[in-house]
C-alpha cells in the first residue's frame, strides 16, 4: 500500500473535471478532465485551435464554462470552485494569476508601478481602503515600503532592475514578457497560468525564461502553461496534457507524450486510418514504442 504512493506524494492543486465550453454551435472544449499537481509545471499543448486558450480563460474566469467543474485547492486546504467565482476573485481569493498571449502591460506606467498595481489588494487593506492612507498613518507607509521591496525582488528575478523607472511600453518584447510574469507573481499566486510565455522570443531569451520559470516552481508556485515552443515544453514541464479539437488526446510526462502516436498524428497531420494502423502495429509489437 505505501510503496505505491511515491507518485502520489504531490496532491493536485487544480482539478478540471468534465469541462465543456460551447460558443453557439461550436464545441470549443468537449468533456475535458485533467489535473495539475502542486509544485509542478504542467503544460497544455495542442495544435492551433485545439482550445487551449479557451481552457485557460475558463480557469482564470474570463469565460464561464458551459459545463464542468474547476476545483482549486490552496495550501491551507481551502477549496474553491473557480467557475463560480467572479473574475477578479479568482486572483484575489483563489490565488490564481495569469499572463496573456498578447502581452497586456500597463504601458504608460513604469515597470515598478506595474508591479505595485499587482499588489493592489494587500496595499488597499493596509491603507484602510484609502482613508487611513490619506491621513498618512504609518501602517500604510510600511506596507508601501514592503511592496516596493517585493517588487524589487521580482525585478531582480526577471532581470529588470535597471529598467525599473522606465515606462513598461518602452521595454523590448522579451523584457515585456518577463515583466508580465513578474507582475503576475507580485500578486502572490499559488498557481501561475502562462499563455504562450515563449511566443516571439529568441533562443537566448527563451533560455532565460526557462530559468525564471524553474525558479518560480522551486519557490513553491505551481505553473500551468500553454506553449507552442516544444523546446520550452519538453525542457521544463513535469507533466504535459495534449488537446486536439477540444478533447484530451494524451496526458503524461514529456517523454510519454513525445512518443504518443496520437500526439504525433495530431501535430503532423496523419490520416485517421493510418493512426489506427500504427496503433495496431504497436499493439502487436511490430514496432517498438518510441521509434515512431
Amino acid at each position: 500500500m505505501t510503496t505505491g504512493t511515491t507518485t502520489m506524494t504531490k496532491d493536485s492543486i487544480l482539478k478540471v473535471e468534465r469541462l465543456s465550453m460551447k460558443f453557439g454551435g461550436l464545441m470549443a472544449i468537449n468533456d475535458l478532465s485533467f489535473e495539475a499537481k502542486r509544485g509542478e509545471i504542467t503544460a497544455l499543448i495542442g495544435p492551433n485551435g485545439a482550445g487551449k486558450t479557451t481552457v485557460f480563460n475558463c480557469i482564470t474566469g474570463f469565460y464561464k464554462p458551459t459545463m464542468g467543474m474547476i476545483t482549486l485547492s490552496r495550501d491551507n486546504g481551502k477549496e474553491f470552485l473557480l467557475e463560480r467565482l467572479r473574475d477578479f476573485e479568482i486572483n484575489k481569493v483563489a490565488g490564481v494569476s495569469r499572463t496573456f498571449q498578447n502581452i497586456r502591460l500597463f504601458s504608460g506606467l513604469t515597470v515598478l508601478e506595474n508591479l505595485l498595481v499587482a499588489q493592489h489588494n494587500v496595499l488597499m487593506k493596509a491603507s484602510g481602503f484609502t482613508i487611513l492612507g490619506l491621513l498618512g498613518l504609518p501602517t500604510y507607509k510600511n506596507a508601501a515600503k514592503a511592496a516596493i521591496e517585493k517588487a524589487q525582488y521580482w525585478l531582480e528575478m526577471a532581470d529588470l532592475v535597471d529598467r525599473a523607472d522606465d515606462p513598461a511600453g518602452d521595454l523590448s518584447y522579451g523584457a515585456q514578457r518577463r515583466l508580465e510574469i513578474a507582475r503576475a507573481m507580485c500578486t502572490g499566486p499559488e498557481l501561475l497560468c502562462l499563455d504562450e510565455p515563449a511566443a516571439g522570443l529568441n533562443p537566448k531569451e527563451s533560455l532565460t525564461l526557462n530559468t525564471l520559470l524553474r525558479a518560480i516552481r522551486d519557490q513553491g508556485t505551481s505553473l500551468l502553461l500553454i506553449e507552442h515552443d516544444m523546446s520550452v515544453v519538453m525542457e521544463i514541464s513535469d507533466h504535459v496534457v495534449v488537446l486536439e479539437y477540444g478533447q484530451k488526446i494524451s496526458d503524461g510526462t514529456p517523454d510519454h507524450v513525445k512518443n504518443d502516436p496520437k500526439v504525433i498524428a495530431a501535430y503532423l497531420g496523419v490520416e485517421d486510418d493510418e493512426v489506427e494502423e500504427i496503433e495496431e502495429k504497436l499493439d502487436k509489437g511490430i514496432i517498438e514504442e518510441g521509434t515512431v
Binding site: T60, G61, F62, D87, F88, E89, I90, N91, K92, S97, R98, F100, R104, L105, F106, S107, G108, L109, E113, L116, V117, A118, H120, N121, R183, A184, T187
Partner: peptide, 17 residues
Amino acid sequence: RAWEALREDEIACRSLG
C-alpha cells in the same frame, strides 16, 4: 494606481485581482 491601471488595460486589472 488602480485608476491609472484601469485606463491602461482593464482586462489586465481584473487578472490581477
